[in-house]
Design a protein around this nucleic acid. Structure first.
Lengths: 122, 122
DNA sequence: GCGATCTGGTCTATGTTCGAGACCGACTAC
DNA sequence: GTAGTCGGTCTCGAACATAGACCAGATCGC
C-alpha cells in the first residue's frame, strides 16, 4: 500500500538525504532544466546557451553549469585558444534524465489550459 | 526532428507563457511537490501537513497551499468549528500530475548514487 | 601604435525571497 | 484566570537572484 511518493518524505531518509529531494532541489530550480533542455540537441558554447535561453544572467548560467557539471549531468571542455572556447555537452546521465522529464513536459502541455482556467476562477 | 524539449525554450511562447516554464516554475520550488506528495494518500489538515513534512515553515506551507489551490491542484475546505478545522485534498488535476512525477521519482531513486559519485569525483 | 572586439566568466550593488518565531482570535477545559 | 488548540499572519534578519559593469589576453582594422 506504500506509494512511490512516500519516498519523498524526509522521515524516509536514514542518512538525511532523501534521493528525490536531493535530486529535485538541484533540478527544480529556475534554470537547470532549461539548460539541460537547451543542451539536448548537442554541444553548445557558453554564449550560445546565453543567447538561446535569452533571459538567464551570465552569473546564473555559470553557476548552473558548474553545478550540473559537478553532479555529472553535463561535461565541460575548454579549448585553449584566443578568444577562449568552452563547450558544454550532456553526459549519458544528463540524457537519461531527460527521458522521464518528457513525461512531465507532456503533462504540462496537456494541462496548462486547466491550470490557467483554475487560476482565473480563483 | 523537433524534440519535445524544444517546447521549453522561451522563443516558443507567443504569449510570453511557455507551458512548461509556467508549470515548472510553480511546481519546481522547494515545497510544492512535497506538499502534493504528502497529500497523495488522502485528506490532511494544516498542522498534519506541517508535522509530516517536518522542516517546512508555517509561512511557506500556507503560501504553497494557497498557490496550489489557486492553480487547481488542491482543494481547501474550512469547517466552522472551534478550534477551526481546515482540510486539504488533491483535486483530479493534482492527482493526474503525480502520475508523470512518479517516473521522475523512479529516475531519482535509480540514479542518485551516480550523482553522488559524480559529486565526489568533482 | 591605438582602439575596438571577441570570449567566458567574476564582482558589486540592489532587490526579492525565505525561515524562525512571536503573535492573533475564538473558544474550551481546568 | 490561565493555559491550550488550530490555522494562520507579521516582522525581522539572512540568504539568494538579478542586472550590469568589469576583466584578461589576443586579434583585427587602420
Amino acid at each position: 500500500m506504500k506509494s512511490v511518493l512516500d519516498q519523498i518524505r524526509p522521515d524516509n531518509d536514514q542518512a538525511n538525504t532523501c534521493p528525490i529531494r536531493d535530486v529535485l532541489d538541484r533540478i527544480g530550480d529556475q534554470w537547470s532544466l532549461l539548460v539541460l533542455a537547451t543542451l539536448d540537441p548537442g554541444v553548445k558554447r557558453f554564449s550560445q546557451l546565453e543567447r538561446e535561453i535569452g533571459d538567464i544572467s551570465k552569473q546564473m548560467l555559470s553557476k548552473t553549469l558548474r553545478r550540473l557539471e559537478q553532479d555529472g549531468f553535463v561535461a565541460r571542455e575548454v579549448h585553449a585558444e584566443v578568444p577562449p572556447r568552452v563547450e558544454y555537452r550532456l553526459t549519458a546521465l544528463g540524457r537519461s534524465f531527460l527521458e522521464p522529464m518528457r513525461g512531465l513536459i507532456r503533462w504540462a502541455e496537456a494541462n496548462q489550459a486547466a491550470i490557467v482556467a483554475a487560476r482565473r476562477r480563483a
